[in-house]
Each structure stands twice: as structure tokens, then as C-alpha cells.
Design a protein around this nucleic acid. Structure first.
Lengths: 200, 200, 200, 200
DNA sequence: TATGAATGAGTCTTCATTCAT
DNA sequence: AATGAATGAAGACTCATTCAT
């Protein structure tokens, strides 16, 4: 209570900033960066166009803040998974779980994934953000595996490969229902592949 | 409005159309679609802005024609590789070759790869183009493997997974020299992984 | 694209919108629709080009709003004339009055009349606007005549013919000083003609 | 024969010029001056764009030549009517004939009438052409009436008024099927009106 | 004469950003 | 802090006219 009373303006301001980030990021994820203009963002956020520039340097800044805030949830839901007490013998179950979670996540924000991926490939900052996160995730998984007594050589590299495979798989499942392609089979193969890789 | 997009018959005209595609595609690949304007394209091609619209419906059309013309070479150099007389025992050599070729290719058109990949993820037509081509390549490789007596089950799925892995690997090598990551090792792992997959 | 045409609430904004309509309509009436560009309109109104598109969908919209605002005064000044206590015996005096008013009006906005008439004949919306107004005027005059005990048959048709005759006459007087043509005489003939028509 | 042999080029050239006039005038009459471009005209005429400027100063010139060539048929079909042996007693029959012919004519080239009328009101040259022709027709009719022993005073003025009335009537009939308006009645009134006018 | 490719000024329109209130 | 009106540079696209062949 006292908290809010003490600095009501700032609290409201923070809330407003959040509102703009949310609105801006949402619209950009939905329609793309170049198909979203600041007027729309302001309207969606329920604020004036002018105020936007009191909180953000420019349109780009809004997106980047949104990315920092929501990017993890969209792209790296696994990063928060903490698994203990597993070993190579039940690793396939863990993987299945990860994949399901990841696919679900993709499905919930189809266009967001695509639009941001587009920016990863066309904008240096976004790319850097993404690859740093990916590295972080790689390390985190690496450590988890170590903690769980994975002894395989070249763990880093393998984790990297693993992430890529899961990524590809999920993208396939969510976006390209190629007829003639059995995704359950594909998933099984990928999992087996990964498990085998870590057995070496 | 009523002007038809011309289908040039004269040699000079054809050459000019090529010039524009070349210039436009090059600039877009270098700087991105939204950072390239028609004036720049015209200038780069050494023509007037007006002529551009006699050969192309709009800026987008230039890009799409460029994609159709150069896309294969950039994204699917492997599509043209014809390999015979190999079997599972020397498949690793073939793979190494493919990977090297692919990496080289990536290196030669770093930004092109990235900008087009960006569009794959944000534009429906480009996505369609890409995935159709990918499917075509999958089938082609599939057939090659059949011809060379690969008996593995679920070949389609495996080929798909293989392509994804190679793609990831090459992208990694070309764009993200993550320190602490040994790409030779990574490459070896990927190759072994693929070979093992087809042995099943 | 997503910008909505603003409906200005603030007084200043309303004034500015009026300014633009006024400037745009004036220029178009003076030089013609196709010989007027938005930059000129903005300049004449003393605003930037951008603001024009916050108040109007496009150039055409400016003209149409101008037409709605000023059209009546230019084309249908008679619409507001309310005459009582006349009958067929002094109808000629009323007619003379109408004609004079109409001619004066024409003279005050010569080019406006012409440019708008041009658009009536080449643009569907403008035509519709004009003919609807004309019909409205026809009905209004019809009613006035009824109220003043005109018993002539086929009143509607006669009113229509009357309006046409007055229109022609005025146009003649204002635009085509044909030598050898006595406009006073012409006016007298027209008036007599009309009066006789209603006597039947 | 010798005719053509002697100067084949010129004959062909004349034919080509006619082709362009025909095509240009037709398109402009159909779609409007500003909605017709020279490329369309050339295509419609089956010639190259370049050649157009060998025969015509500019686009405007094409239209004006078309107007001179076809304008009469469209706007002044009556001008060619030669009537003898009529007098005030059977003048109504003549008028009916004229009106029918005029209406038919209007109907055959609805858009042409409108588009050209638009230009009459927005272009000085076209206006001049039209009013000169109108005057000529007035005089011609005037003379015809004199020849047929019409003794009415102020003949010129009356003829002018008459033409205007017929014009209005026909325009009404062709373009504005106002419900609630009986055009046969209207026509009868107009004819009676005119006849009465000349009786004075 | 004829072609049709080429020009480039001109037009409408958008929108990130700033400013007056 | 907040509003939303205002700016103006920039971009896509058109088309009458000219030019190289």
C-alpha cells in the first residue's frame, strides 16, 4: 500500500510503459514490424502517440523491449525446465516432454514465432539477443546433463545439435503439415537419434 | 494502371530485365527488402525508375523474380548434385562433400541467405517457394538413396531430418563462431549421426 | 493504411479541416480536379501535406466534402427561397426574381460551375449528388406551387421542364454572350413560356 | 487505282492517322480523358506508341481531332436533317421526329455524350467547338423555319430555347429514369410548349 | 516511317517523429 | 506527464513524351 502511495506517478508510468510494450510487441508479432505503425500501437495501448516517445527512443526500441520481456517465453520455454534425477536410460522421456512443451508453445504463438524469426535473420540486435539466449540455454542444458552424470564427449556440441534438431522438428510439426510425412515417426527418430548421440 | 507488364522480346530488353532483377535482388539481399527502394534499384541497374515498372508489376515482383532465378543457387546448391555408386559404407564421404559445398555457398552470400530467410518467415509466397523447393530436394535425395540401395525404413522422414541437421550445422559454421565450439567435431558428430540413422 | 480518417473534435482541428476543404474545393473549382494536386491544396490551406490525409481519405474525399458543403450555394440557391402568396397571375415576377438570383450566382462562381458540371458528367458520385439535389428542389418547388393553388396537370413534369429552361437560360447569359442574341428578350420568352405552361 | 499507286505511303499514313483518331476518341469517350493513356490508344489502334507523336502533337490533339471528326454525329445529328414542306400546323410531328432521333443517338453513345459534355465544361477549346456548332445549328434551323414561313418574332432566341428544351428532355430520358416521372407526358408538354412559342 | 524501349518529372500517400497546448 | 495535431521527408508508382534503332 504505502508502496504505491509513495510514488504513484512512477507506478502509473511503469504500468503505461508496460502497456505500450505489450501492445507494440503484440501487434508486431501479429502483423510484422513493417506492417505495424506507432499510431496503431498507441491506440492498442490506449495512450496517445506522443507519450510513446517519452518512454521509448523509437519504434524499434518498443520492439526490442518487448523481445526482452516476452522473448524467453516464446522462444525458450525449455530454459526454465529443471530436471533432476534422470539419466541416459530415461532421457527419451525427458526429451518427449520437452518437445511437446515446445510444440505447444509454438502453436500458441505461430505468427509471433515467424515474425521474430524473420527479424533474427534481418536484424543484428535481434540476432544477437537470440543467439546469446540460445547459448545460455545450451550451457544450462549442458550443466543439467553433467549434473545427471552424462559422460559423453563433446557435450557442448551435442547439446547444440540436439537443440537444432528439436527446433527443426517442432517447426515442421507446427507449420508444414507436409502430407506424406509422419510426424510421430519423425519425432521418434529424432529422439532416438539424440539419445544415441549421447551414448557415444 | 492499364499498362501491362511487358514481356520483352528484343534481346536488349531481355538483358535490361535481367539487369533489373540482378540489381534489385542484389540490393534486397544486401540491405533487406524494406531498406531497398525502387530508385536505388533503378540506379544500380543503370536505368530509369520508369522502366522498372514496364518489366515488373511492383517492387515485390522484382524480388520474387530474383528469388526464382537465383534462389536455387543460394539455397539449394545440393539439388543439382548427382551422386551414383555410393552406399551406406561411404555415405559419410558424400555427406562431407555436401556440407562443404553448402558451407562455401553460404559464405559466398551471407547476407542474401539471411535476408531471404527473414522473408521466408514473414512472407507467405516466399515461404511457399522455399518449402516447395525443400520438398523437391527431399524427394530428389530420397530417390538417389533408393537408387543406391538404402533400405532404411521411413526414408522420407530421415531425409528431412538430415537436411535440417545439415542446414543447422552450416548456418552455425557460417554465422556464429561461438567460441568454445569446435566445428570440426560438430561436423563429425552430425555426419556420424546421419549415417547411423540410415543404418537402422 | 490503417490510419483512420480522423473526425476532429477540437475546435482548432475542425477549423483546420474546414480550411482544407475550402482550399481544396476552391482550387479544384478554379483549375479543375485533375489540375490540382494535394501539395497545392496543402499549401493553399497553409498546412502540411501530411495533415491532409488525417482529415480526408484522399484527394477525392476533399472534393466531395467541399461539394457537400458548398454545392448547394453554388448550384441550388433557389432551394432556399420560400415564396408565399403568389399565384399564377404574378408568377412571372417570382420567376424573374429566381432567374436574377440564379444568374448572379452563376456569375460569382463561373469556373466553379463549369468544373463541377464537368464532374457531374464524368463522375458517378457527383452525378448522383447533383441529381438527388435537383430532385429535391423539384419537389420543393412542386410543393410550393401546390400550396399556392397551382392546379395544372402533370405538375412534376412541368416543374422539371421549368428548371431545365431556367438553367439553360442562365448558363447562356453567363457564359455565351452570343452576339445577335438578345438575352432580355430570351428571358421574357422563357418566362412567358413557363407561365403559359402552368396555365394549361 | 492509280490514285493509290501514286502515293501509297501517304494513303497508308492517312489511314493510320484515322485509326489512331478512332481508337483514341473511342477510348476517351468510353473511359474519360484522364483515364485513357496513350499506350492504350496505340494498342487499340494497332500501332506503336512512338508513331502517335508523328501524327499528333499530343494526346489532347488526338481527342480534338476525334471531336472534329465524330462530334457532329454524336452531338448534332439534327444538323443534317433537311425538312421541307412543313408549317406550324404539322411542326409537332417534325419535333417528335427530331426528339426520337436525338434520343436514339444519345442512347447509342451514352458515355461518349457524358465524357464530352464533361470536357465542354472544363476545357476552353472543346467548349468553343461545341458552342460554335450549336450556333451553326441554331442558324440552320432558323433558316429552315424561315423557308417554311415561320413568322414568329425573335426567331433566333426561340430556336435557342427550343434546342435547350429538347436537349434537356433527351438527357433526362436517357440518363435519369426518375421514377414518378412520365416521359411521354413530358415529351408532349415540351412539344406543345415549343409549338405554342412559335405561334406567338 | 515505324517501333517500342526509355525517360524522369510528377502524383498520391504513409508514417516515424516532434511540437504546441 | 499527456495529448493528438502537425510535420515533411520518403516511397511506390504512372504516363506523356522522346529517342535509339
Amino acid at each position: 500500500m504505502e508502496y504505491e502511495v509513495r510514488n504513484p506517478k512512477q507506478v502509473r508510468a511503469i504500468r503505461k510503459k508496460e502497456l505500450i510494450i505489450e501492445a507494440g510487441f503484440k501487434l508486431i508479432c501479429k502483423n510484422g514490424y513493417y506492417n505495424t505503425n506507432t499510431a496503431q500501437v498507441a491506440k492498442e495501448a490506449g495512450v496517445s502517440t506522443g507519450i510513446v516517445y517519452q518512454y521509448f527512443k523509437d519504434k524499434y526500441d518498443i520492439f526490442m523491449e518487448g523481445l526482452k520481456k516476452y522473448g524467453d517465453d516464446i522462444f525458450f520455454p525449455m530454459i526454465k525446465i529443471e530436471h533432476d534425477n534422470f539419466d541416459i536410460s530415461n532421457f527419451d522421456i525427458i526429451l518427449k516432454e520437452m518437445i511437446d512443451k515446445y510444440i505447444n508453445n509454438h502453436k500458441m504463438s505461430k505468427t509471433a514465432h515467424e515474425e521474430i524469426t524473420a527479424m533474427i535473420h534481418s536484424n543484428h540486435d535481434v540476432a544477437k539477443y537470440y543467439y546469446d539466449k540460445e547459448l545460455e540455454m545450451t550451457k544450462s542444458i549442458h550443466n543439467t546433463l553433467l549434473k545427471n552424470n552424462f559422460k559423453s564427449k563433446n557435450l557442448s556440441e551435442k547439446v547444440h545439435i540436439m537443440i537444432g534438431m528439436i527446433d527443426n522438428l517442432c517447426h515442421e510439426v507446427v507449420y508444414h503439415q507436409h502430407e506424406n510425412m509422419n510426424y510421430n515417426v519423425m519425432s521418434d527418430i529424432v529422439i532416438k537419434n539424440i539419445v544415441d548421440m549421447f551414448k557415444e
